[in-house]
Computed example of a mutant assay.
Amino acid sequence: MFLIEMFVYIGTIAFAISGSLVAIKKNLDVFGVLLLGLTTALAGGVIRDLMIGNIPPTNLADPKYFFVSLLASIATIIFYERINRFKHGIIFSDAIGLGVFTAVGANAALNLDYSQPFLIVAMGLVTGIGGGVLRDVFVREVPLVFRKEIYGIASIAGSIALISTYELISPPTVSLYICLIITLTIRILAVIWKWNVPIVHKKQANKRTIHS
Rank of each mutant, 00 (worst) to 15 (best):
residue 1 M to P: 08
residue 4 I to D: 08
residue 5 E to K: 15
residue 7 F to D: 04
residue 9 Y to V: 10
residue 10 I to N: 05
residue 12 T to N: 14
residue 13 I to E: 03
residue 14 A to Q: 07
residue 18 S to F: 03
residue 20 S to A: 14
residue 26 K to S: 13
residue 30 V to K: 15
residue 31 F to A: 09
residue 33 V to S: 10
residue 34 L to S: 06
residue 42 L to M: 14
residue 51 M to N: 08
residue 53 G to S: 11
residue 54 N to C: 13
residue 54 N to G: 08
residue 56 P to V: 00
residue 57 P to T: 00
residue 61 A to D: 11
residue 62 D to T: 11
residue 62 D to V: 13
residue 63 P to E: 15
residue 65 Y to Q: 07
residue 65 Y to R: 06
residue 65 Y to W: 12
residue 67 F to E: 09
residue 67 F to P: 12
residue 70 L to S: 07
residue 75 A to Y: 12
residue 78 I to V: 14
residue 82 R to H: 14
residue 83 I to A: 06
residue 84 N to H: 12
residue 86 F to K: 06
residue 86 F to I: 15
residue 86 F to T: 03
residue 87 K to P: 04
residue 89 G to L: 12
residue 92 F to P: 07
residue 93 S to A: 15
residue 93 S to K: 03
residue 94 D to W: 09
residue 95 A to K: 09
residue 97 G to Y: 01
residue 98 L to Y: 04
residue 104 V to D: 09
residue 106 A to P: 02
residue 107 N to H: 13
residue 109 A to S: 13
residue 112 L to W: 07
residue 114 Y to G: 03
residue 115 S to Q: 15
residue 116 Q to L: 11
residue 117 P to M: 02
residue 118 F to H: 01
residue 119 L to V: 07
residue 119 L to N: 01
residue 120 I to H: 06
residue 122 A to I: 01
residue 125 L to T: 13
residue 125 L to C: 13
residue 126 V to D: 01
residue 128 G to I: 09
residue 129 I to C: 10
residue 132 G to Y: 07
residue 138 F to K: 04
residue 139 V to W: 12
residue 143 P to R: 00
residue 148 K to M: 10
residue 149 E to Y: 08
residue 152 G to N: 02
residue 157 A to K: 00
residue 157 A to Y: 02
residue 157 A to C: 14
residue 163 I to H: 00
residue 165 T to H: 07
residue 166 Y to F: 15
residue 166 Y to I: 10
residue 166 Y to K: 08
residue 168 L to V: 09
residue 169 I to D: 04
residue 171 P to A: 02
residue 173 T to Y: 15
residue 174 V to C: 05
residue 175 S to D: 02
residue 177 Y to S: 09
residue 178 I to G: 00
residue 179 C to Y: 01
residue 179 C to K: 00
residue 180 L to R: 00
residue 180 L to K: 00
residue 183 T to W: 01
residue 184 L to N: 05
residue 184 L to F: 14
residue 185 T to F: 05
residue 190 A to C: 04
residue 195 W to H: 06
residue 196 N to Y: 09
residue 196 N to G: 03
residue 200 V to N: 10
residue 200 V to P: 06
residue 201 H to E: 14
residue 203 K to M: 12
residue 204 Q to F: 12
residue 205 A to H: 14
residue 208 R to Q: 10
residue 208 R to Y: 14
